[in-house]
Amino acid sequence: HNLTITQGKLFFHYNPKLCLSEIHKMEEVSGTKGRQERNDIALKTNGDQASCENELLKFSYIRTSFDKILLRWEPYWPPDFRDLLGFMLFYKEAPYQNVTEFDGQDACGSNSWTVVDIDPPLRSNDPKSQNHPGWLMRGLKPWTQYAIFVKTLVTFSDERRTYGAKSDIIYVQTDATNPSVPLDPISVSNSSSQIILKWKPPSDPNGNITHYLVFWERQAEDSELFELDYCLKGLKLPSRTWSPPFESEDSQKHNQSEYEDSAGECCSCPKTDSQILKELEESSFRKTFEDYLHNVVFVPRKTSSGTGAEDPRPSRKRRSLGDVGNVTVAVPTVAAFPNTSSTSVPTSPEEHRPFEKVVNKESLVISGLRHFTGYRIELQACNQDTPEERCSVAAYVSARTMPEAKADDIVGPVTHEIFENNVVHLMWQEPKEPNGLIVLYEVSYRRYGDEELHLCVSRKHFALERGCRLRGLSPGNYSVRIRATSLAGNGSWTEPTYFYVTDYLDVPSNIA
């Protein structure tokens, strides 16, 4: 807008934040220059609390790290170098490059900038070799853009010569660093050979998330399962459950009422301010606690030095998902009996873990797994792929695949051998790939016309006998059925096997 004052003059007093240069501009645009008398524009009460600059400061050096910015700028000295009290560095987070010096300023003089007072450097006698002032900004957020400017702080001049310097606002972004852990990993099994893994992005990506790394490792069953005799009275049979499938998407929606109208769909109840505040506090606490764990609990591995020492970490090797089922080394339970199943799973520490690289999504279907087997899954978020990966501390989750139908069934015939004193040795093959492992066998036998009897055969007993022995049988026709019990439950009964026990007292003698 054009402003013209045809008559009258300007009068400025007691404006401590208004620089004289701005008042002189007002004289020019209003056409009143030359009308004012000496005392109409006070030299001592206008701009006496402001830094009124008329020179431009330029930054000469900028260096960044993930949490620091090192700045240096060209030296500046007023005509009387004693008038320079120091520099004021202003900075704040700036997602967009549209910041002005006066953003967030209120009537009390406060604003949204963080201000650092910096002492002037030592003055050199040689004007050509003056030290460049600077400042190291610490405690910054990774991968965050900051708006920065600097200006001088000078003393009051009796001659009211307006001098000083100020830089333009520059924008500097800190470097990326390792992201925080992925949030809320959930693993479920939808079949006997697959596990579905879902997660949420890290709360602090500290860069642009480029991919996720998912490692999985087959877990050995508890050692007590191999040692305890679950045929003993009072000892509860062990059981394991597989990871249940995901709930429906509708039930997972946030901010939804727990109660549904019987007449149909209901609208979600909005969260109160107290609920939102509580969630923010919980989120802040979780982030602080995660940072504490990362800094205190997890110790970084030592990389190899120039002395030739090897990095103890196993090298990563990509495998196809079809090879995942046989990740671990199978060892027989008892070496003397080769027909026992290889369900003991000690994992070799030198073995390469299978892994998958996930790009542009937060889910993965891990296939080719062994049925009813526990897996430990390790999830890392990465925001750099080359020249070397920059990934987060791992988040861990466990899951067990679903049982395989008929995996616990005894394959092959049940054979028998009759000894003296009416002892019958029953023999059968253990299931080759049971659900988890076989903890015991149930032997059901009966003599024709009598009630059915049951015998429990422990895992250890089966390994020693290759089956079991029935003792003290009365003469007669017998039928026997056997079924295995694994961590997933009972298998199917075998087809009945028949044998006849004679009275050993009636056996004919070869003595003449």
Score class of each variant (00 low, 15 high):
447 R>N: 11
322 G>P: 08
263 A>T: 09
233 K>R: 10
342 S>W: 03
317 K>D: 13
229 D>Y: 06
271 K>L: 08
464 L>H: 11
303 T>C: 14
294 H>S: 15
462 F>L: 06
228 L>A: 03
363 S>T: 10
434 P>M: 08
388 E>A: 10
237 L>H: 08
270 P>C: 03
318 R>I: 12
489 G>T: 05
335 A>H: 10
285 F>Y: 06
505 L>H: 05
389 E>W: 11
395 A>E: 13
203 S>W: 11
482 I>W: 00
282 E>L: 07
376 R>T: 10
405 A>L: 12
238 P>Q: 13
255 N>D: 09
408 D>T: 07
226 F>M: 06
433 E>Y: 12
323 D>N: 08
335 A>T: 11
362 E>W: 10
433 E>Q: 07
218 R>S: 12
372 F>K: 01
208 N>S: 09
279 E>A: 06
403 P>I: 02
224 E>Y: 12
489 G>W: 13
312 P>S: 13
368 G>M: 07
344 S>R: 12
297 V>Y: 03
431 P>T: 03
403 P>D: 02
218 R>M: 15
468 C>I: 11
398 S>N: 14
335 A>E: 10
386 T>H: 09
238 P>I: 05
480 V>R: 02
428 W>L: 01
385 D>A: 09
216 W>Y: 13
231 C>K: 01
205 P>D: 03
290 E>Y: 02
321 L>P: 12
468 C>S: 10
239 S>E: 06
342 S>R: 14
494 T>A: 06
272 T>H: 11
379 L>V: 08
496 P>M: 06
355 F>M: 11
325 G>Q: 14
479 S>T: 11
321 L>T: 13
338 P>N: 04
454 H>F: 00
456 C>R: 02
365 V>K: 02
384 Q>I: 10
387 P>R: 06
251 S>R: 06
448 Y>T: 14
356 E>I: 06
339 N>P: 10
288 T>V: 14
268 S>C: 05
315 S>G: 11
412 G>E: 05
459 R>S: 13
336 A>M: 13
346 P>V: 14
303 T>N: 14
267 C>R: 00
259 Y>A: 05
369 L>C: 03
353 R>T: 06
208 N>P: 12
509 S>Q: 14
247 E>T: 09
304 S>E: 13
273 D>K: 11
360 N>Y: 10
322 G>F: 02
476 G>M: 00
231 C>Q: 01
365 V>T: 05
444 S>N: 01
491 G>W: 01
320 S>H: 07
308 G>P: 15
356 E>P: 15
327 V>D: 12
455 L>V: 08
257 S>M: 04
402 M>P: 09
353 R>G: 09
390 R>N: 02
501 V>F: 13
482 I>K: 01
497 T>A: 08
320 S>G: 14
283 S>W: 10
260 E>C: 07
287 K>T: 04
338 P>K: 05
259 Y>Q: 07
223 S>P: 13
410 I>M: 05
235 L>W: 08
478 Y>N: 01
378 E>M: 10
287 K>A: 05
215 F>D: 11
425 H>K: 09
512 A>T: 01
236 K>E: 02
320 S>V: 11
244 P>M: 14
242 W>A: 03
270 P>T: 15
243 S>P: 10
467 G>F: 08
310 E>D: 01
423 V>I: 10
398 S>F: 07
481 R>L: 08
224 E>A: 06
327 V>M: 10
274 S>V: 08
494 T>Q: 03
406 K>P: 05
211 H>T: 11
287 K>E: 02
404 E>R: 13
277 L>D: 02
313 R>L: 12
467 G>K: 10
266 C>Y: 03
438 I>D: 02
408 D>W: 06
466 R>D: 11
254 H>W: 07
279 E>H: 03
468 C>R: 14
279 E>T: 05
460 K>E: 07
365 V>E: 13
347 T>H: 04
222 D>H: 15
229 D>V: 03
404 E>P: 11
306 G>E: 08
310 E>H: 05
243 S>E: 05
454 H>E: 01
481 R>H: 05
336 A>S: 12
445 Y>Q: 02
461 H>M: 11
455 L>Y: 11
426 L>S: 03
344 S>K: 10
228 L>K: 03
231 C>F: 01
444 S>C: 03
357 K>F: 13
471 R>G: 09
474 S>R: 06
452 E>R: 08
241 T>P: 15
330 A>H: 11
315 S>K: 07
429 Q>S: 14
240 R>P: 11
361 K>H: 08
344 S>I: 11
456 C>T: 01
507 V>Q: 05
394 A>V: 12
415 T>G: 10
494 T>N: 14
385 D>E: 09
252 Q>L: 11
267 C>S: 02
223 S>R: 13
418 I>A: 11
447 R>F: 07
236 K>N: 05
207 G>T: 00
329 V>T: 09
289 F>N: 01
303 T>M: 10
468 C>Q: 04
212 Y>T: 13
350 E>G: 07
381 A>I: 00
279 E>L: 04
400 R>F: 04
463 A>C: 08
397 V>M: 13
378 E>H: 07
257 S>R: 06
503 D>I: 02
397 V>Q: 07
238 P>G: 05
278 K>W: 10
292 Y>N: 02
485 T>A: 12
355 F>K: 13
382 C>L: 00
347 T>Q: 15
332 P>M: 12
432 K>S: 08
223 S>I: 08
440 L>D: 05
313 R>Y: 04
262 S>K: 08
215 F>N: 07
322 G>T: 10
307 T>Y: 15
461 H>F: 11
239 S>I: 07
379 L>A: 09
245 P>F: 07
314 P>Y: 14
448 Y>L: 07
243 S>M: 12
460 K>N: 05
495 E>L: 03
296 V>T: 07
265 E>V: 09
505 L>N: 08
419 F>P: 01
390 R>A: 08
208 N>H: 05
